[in-house]
């Protein structure tokens, strides 16, 4: 049954979900690698949590206008807007106050998420608007995924990858040496905003499949796992994309084999498994390789 799921033969919906999830994983892995190089992985946590109020407000706005509150593109737009505001607040707090980025991230994450939860509670108590399933965006819910949803996700992923490819040189240069990049004429502040916008795009695209709480895992874990295998930035980026895509595909397939397995969390668990294997068994930077090196070194020192 798992084999059927992996080879997309477990029904139309399962195949859609698996394809969408691997496209999302690929985009998240690639963007996440640049985020990891820039040492800004945690900003993605603030961005993703900051989507919730926008998501809820978009729903409320659609219901107020008399429509179905769950139209995906509109929900994505609302999420993107509020995540963008959250991002600007983090950026502003870090630049204009003495707050460090970690504190700014914590503040934005909790305030936005708290506000979003309040709005969600209001929505749950409403009588109309077909709010059932809206809380699926917290942890991902693929049960009712439509062909159009999958297309939106795929197009979003392709756009994100195209922009990353375009900006690959300045992104790497800035991640390694910000001062040098500035002197080359790269506006590093604007480039950072561009990178965060890509993160935002991945988050919004991933709302349906992984949900806003766990998308951060798909942005961080594949990159962290890939780093164990290579000292070459380009290879780390590619491998991170592959890890992300494999996590998405295998996770979606696994969750399709049983009715109650949630897709998002399973995808994250698959990514975590890849990370664990990488951490222990990667040659060079892996834990076991390091232990062997250390033991050999000790043997040599003792032998003298």
């Amino acid at each position: 049954m798992l084999f059927d799921a992996l080879t997309l033969q477990l029904g139309y919906n399962a195949a859609l979900v698996a394809l969408g999830a691997s496209a999302l994983g690929l985009a998240a892995g690639v963007v996440g690698a640049f985020l990891y190089f820039r040492k800004r992985s945690l900003v993605s946590d603030a961005v993703s949590h900051a989507t919730l109020p926008g998501l809820a407000l978009a729903f409320l706005a659609m219901v107020a206008l008399g429509g179905d509150g769950r139209t995906l593109p509109v929900l994505m737009l609302g999420s993107a807007l509020s995540a963008w505001i959250g991002l600007l607040v983090v950026s502003w707090l870090t630049r204009r106050t003495r707050l460090r980025e970690d504190a700014a991230i914590g503040a934005v994450l909790s305030v936005f998420f708290g506000f979003g939860i309040v709005l969600m509670t209001v929505i749950q108590s409403m009588q109309s608007g077909r709010q059932a399933g809206l809380d699926g965006f917290l942890l991902g819910s693929t049960a009712g995924m439509l062909r159009n949803d999958a297309i939106v996700i795929a197009i979003g992923g392709v756009l994100v990858l195209a922009v990353v490819w375009l900006l690959r040189r300045p992104l790497l240069l800035t991640a390694f040496d910000e001062g040098f990049a500035e002197v080359q004429g790269i506006n590093t502040h604007r480039l950072d905003l561009a990178l965060m916008t890509l993160v935002l795009a991945v988050t919004v695209v991933g709302l349906k499949i992984v949900g806003l709480i766990l998308i951060v895992a798909l942005l961080i874990i594949p990159a962290a796992a890939a780093r164990f295998w290579s000292d070459n930035a380009v290879r780390v980026v590619l491998l991170s994309g592959v890890f992300g895509a494999v996590s998405g595909h295998v996770g979606a397939a696994l969750s399709a084999t049983a009715p109650s397995l949630p897709t998002g969390p399973i995808i994250v668990l698959v990514a975590t498994a890849l990370f664990t294997v990488s951490m222990f068994f990667a040659p060079g930077r892996g834990v076991i390789a390091g232990m062997i090196r250390h033991a050999r070194m000790r043997g040599r020192v003792d032998g003298i």
Binding site: K39, L172, F176, D177, E178, G179, N232, V236
Partner: peptide, 9 residues
């Protein structure tokens, strides 16, 4: 001023 553990040659 830079991180020399950056994955590059």
């Amino acid at each position: 001023s830079v991180d020399w553990d950056f994955p590059t040659r």
